[in-house]
Amino acid sequence: MNTADFFNFLKPKNELENQGQEAENQPFIPDELWVKCPVCKSPVLSSDLGENNKVCPKCGYHFRIGARQRIELTVDKDSFREFDADMVSENIIDFPDYTRKLKNAKANSGENESVITGEAKIGGCETVIAVMNSQFMMGSMGTVTGEKITRAFEYATENKLPVVVFTVSGGARMQEGIMSLMQMAKTSGAVKRHSDAGLLYITVLTDPTTGGVTASFAMEGDIILSEPGALIAFAGPRVIEQTIRQKLPKGFQSAEFLLEKGFIDAVVNRNEMKDTLTKLLKLHSNKSVFGEGADE
């Protein structure tokens, strides 16, 4: 390890200086041979980054990944069965330009909406899973997003299954007006019924999780995990800076900051997420995990 690398190693793993503020402009991994890590500035070989699940091997910065890749990293091979894949949004309040935006979002992401839901096995445990997708209108919550999540929870309640939700969202979808706001209440109702049935709900917050999603199902998990360095906010940093007219301190609204303030249970590295989820799911399963002789 040379001196520069050593200091990078010493640096806090997740600085928000290049994150958050311009969160929406952050790059996905381009098809280039080398990528510059936006946090430690080190050049990283694309193939190395890919092998490390898009976590910078030098500083641990978590690049954003799409929903399909997230599912692949999380669920047992070939165990995913998707729900409501064909459900599509309409321009319900006739909002200017929304129809075109939806079309572009579909074309750019290859998905029909900002969330993918389904059932799968994680470490052998049957679970319902919902994964939001930042590539679709910045993961904003429209009616179909809310409907898919609500249905996933209702299915889990009916079938007595745990739910794991990966969040990434710019918040409510302005183009659906009040209908978008109503999704916060709708999803919260479904989460509450699932909770009242004694079932486990784990949320995994990823970069960025903001607005109406933070103020509803993202913060309603029994256990709330986050990826390192994720921006987690009700109001985004720019909005706050405009309101209070001062710069925010470094690291404000990072996952580590929320951990310190008591709003999340643990910050978990992407490469350890599946094992962590498996452990939690097993600890909450009805089957004894403490070996023979333990009570059912």
């Binding site: 509450k192 103020a215 009700f234 109001a235 404000f252």
Partner: peptide, 26 residues
């Protein structure tokens, strides 16, 4: 709207609203 500021975020504005939505439902 709910206040946007440092204290509001530090004390969990999102969590507080989310909890109301859930609890009011039942």
């Amino acid at each position: 709207g709910a206040y946007c500021g440092i204290g509001a975020e530090e004390r969990g504005q999102g969590q507080a609203i989310a909890e109301n939505l859930m609890e009011m439902m039942t």
